[in-house]
């Protein structure tokens, strides 16, 4: 316990200061004000290399702290407002991805994270890949990058939560 308190005292606050709100918060990219400041996000890995997942983990960590913008990860799509999809859609995950989307209640939005989700990235044409996320479910926000930086993830999700 004392070691923890000593560490807190010596390290201080490591969280990055809050970023400026994204410039185009008032246009179609902000989708609409339907979520009222908080979104529950369910992540689905449709076949990624886990690079995007590490960046998502870092975005929710103590340095970038995505939760202060009203974003929360949930386990069940029944509880989710936003579906966060990474990776190209592989053969085994095509059906579960569509099922997860259909299990979400309205209103719902989809974020395609990373180059693979956007257009299959480096895995385009591979034998196990069936297509990009937009071929299976309607995508509302796309985040480019391989992997995208945590700031890009934060910007995309802030557009949806409105904070």
């Amino acid at each position: 316990m004392t070691g923890l308190l000593r560490m807190i005292r010596s390290h201080g606050l490591i969280t990055e200061p809050a970023l400026n709100p994204p410039e185009d918060m008032s246009d179609a990219a902000r989708v609409d004000d339907v979520f009222g400041g908080s979104i529950q996000v369910r992540h689905v890995d449709a076949g990624s290399c886990n690079g995007c997942e590490i960046e998502i983990g870092s975005a929710f960590g103590p340095v970038y702290d995505l939760e202060r913008y009203g974003v929360r990860l949930v386990a069940s799509p029944r509880h989710a407002d936003v579906l966060l999809v990474t990776g190209p859609v592989t053969r085994n995950m095509a059906d579960p991805l569509v099922k997860a989307y259909e299990a979400m209640p309205e209103p719902k939005r989809v974020v395609a994270l990373g180059d693979c989700a956007r257009d299959c990235g480096v895995f385009a044409g591979a034998y196990g890949v069936q297509g990009r996320v937009g071929d299976f479910i309607p995508v509302d926000v796309t985040v480019a990058g391989c992997p995208p930086e945590p700031e890009a993830i934060i910007t995309a999700l802030r557009r949806l939560s409105g904070r």
Binding site: P96, K99, A100, E102
Partner: peptide, 11 residues
């Protein structure tokens, strides 16, 4: 209302 499948972890 919308009729949907029971959520079974996508499996």
């Amino acid at each position: 209302r919308r009729a949907a499948l029971v959520w079974g972890c996508g499996g």
